[in-house]
Design a binder for these strands. Structure first.
Lengths: 262, 262
DNA sequence: ACAAGTTGTTCCGCGAAGCGCAACGGAGGG
DNA sequence: CCCTCCGTTGCGCTTCGCGGAACAACTTGT
């Protein structure tokens, strides 16, 4: 949240202050509407400063003002960039229809995720049929060791890199989160053997997820597909069924990616 | 592109310079990879300035560096915002599956667009089956009077607002672009009667498009669905067939939006 | 193979640009 | 109808960010 100016410490090449603040504003607004005063308080700056930053973002359509003098929220202009990043990562576009189909077939929320250093990032999503308005996970950075997708991705990473990647990262989110490096290693080995990974309440209480890897042209893993839902519905019993469906989707996605040329 | 500092003229409340530049960088990178020097030249600033701006964006994952010292491109962090804006505009999420289905049925690229002042902005997209790697239109701001979607949206706007909206906007893109306000008025009236709009090479030579409006809860138009493709394939003859499919999709989308609660 | 041309990054001093302050004007709410 | 809270706008001071130049790591040309 409010990470103010860190004057001393590590020698980071120094960021441009106002740009950094502007990005923070965008991240705040990504979570919901806010007023200028609220933003200023969160940033730890004066109202006027926040106002001008917001104005700049608004002039470029990155934020929108709801009334003439109302609150602010993320703007449509952001979609332009969204389209660009989606265009660069073919998997985003190609993953969407696959997600849709799986979501309909399983009735659960389905995501495609890729690995970015220690985090798994969801790049595509399709909501399940359940009426419960599920959370939007797109773009979310989730700790790889605590999610099904993450573990599916990590399982095929060389152990050497792995230790480096997760050094000092193993924070506990629930009672079931794996925090012991050695235990994690064993679990990942098992994942590689079985060809699927699970996360049963390791990230959030009551949240279950099952994931399988998506292979690229060679033997490398380029993504993971996961199904997630409430614990009472996505039980252990359903693993074989769900894994089977996910595998089919993963194969489908692999093929489409190969066809697309990458 | 390079809009430098305009010292004189209208009294705009003044933007924060570095933030404005940073956004320009993002827009540049949205079109493809670039190097720092290239960016600096485009912005009209010194390399060092560009380097620091890019570093700031990179630290927040909004841009990525391809090698250790390579070129830059839009980063995955952008997806976080994309998810946020998609969450706020329900139509983005709901529109996607509708696009997919229509695209498969028609074999052409299908888009959902909304109106933003004088521009039509594509918010959802599904590519057609044709092997031709079509352009990514998501987030694109297109001149409403020259696109099928745009005209479908404008046709239900009160004439008063319309004149104000398009004052001095009617630029010509091709020989067929409508640049006469009176002619546009007549065309739009026709669109409202027929219930569909076309753009045959009015935006780009060789590009045809057909669109229908999407109605909200009342009689208001909240979006438009369009099919677009090369002139030789999406000919006038196909209008009845395509319009019929699009109408069905629009009704579907309307229903789903109503069901979703907005 | 070396040199000359790139590239992107870092250090530093000056100046403008952006910040905080305070006053303004409108919108609700009591 | 006053009082409070909101977002916006001049204004002056200081800081922050810019430009210049030197640097280091690659690529190219001969």
């Amino acid at each position: 949240m409010s990470n103010s100016t860190e004057s001393t410490g590590a020698r980071e090449p120094a960021s441009v202050q106002s740009v950094d603040r502007a990005i923070t504003i965008l991240e705040l607004l990504a979570r919901g509407e806010m007023g200028v005063t609220e933003i200023a308080a969160e940033l730890g700056v004066h109202k006027s400063t926040a106002s001008r930053l917001v104005y700049t973002l608004q002039a470029r359509q990155l934020v929108e003002q709801h009334g003439e003098r109302g609150r602010f929220s993320i703007g449509i202009g952001m979609l332009r960039f969204a389209g660009a990043v989606a265009g660069q990562l073919d998997i985003v576009q190609i993953g969407n229809p696959v997600c849709e189909e799986l979501a309909e077939r399983l009735g659960e929320t389905v995501n495609v995720a890729v690995l970015d250093s220690a985090n798994a990032i969801n790049v595509s999503q399709a909501l399940g049929t359940s009426a419960v308005a599920a959370q939007n996970w797109i773009g979310q950075r989730t700790p790889s060791y605590a999610t099904a997708s993450g573990k599916a991705l990590l399982a095929y990473t060389p152990p050497g890199e792995l230790d480096e990647l997760l050094a000092g990262e193993l924070v506990s989110y629930t009672a079931r989160t794996i925090t012991d490096p050695q235990e994690l290693g064993e679990v990942l080995k098992r994942v590689a053997e079985d060809g699927y990974a699970t996360s049963f309440e390791e990230l959030e209480p009551g949240l279950h997820a099952i994931a399988v890897p998506v292979f690229g042209a060679g033997q490398d893993v380029i993504a993971a597909i996961s199904a997630s839902g409430p614990a009472y519905r996505l039980s252990k019993k359903r693993i074989p069924e769900v894994v089977e469906e996910l595998r089919q989707g993963a194969r489908d996605l692999s093929d489409r990616m190969a066809y697309a040329g990458r």
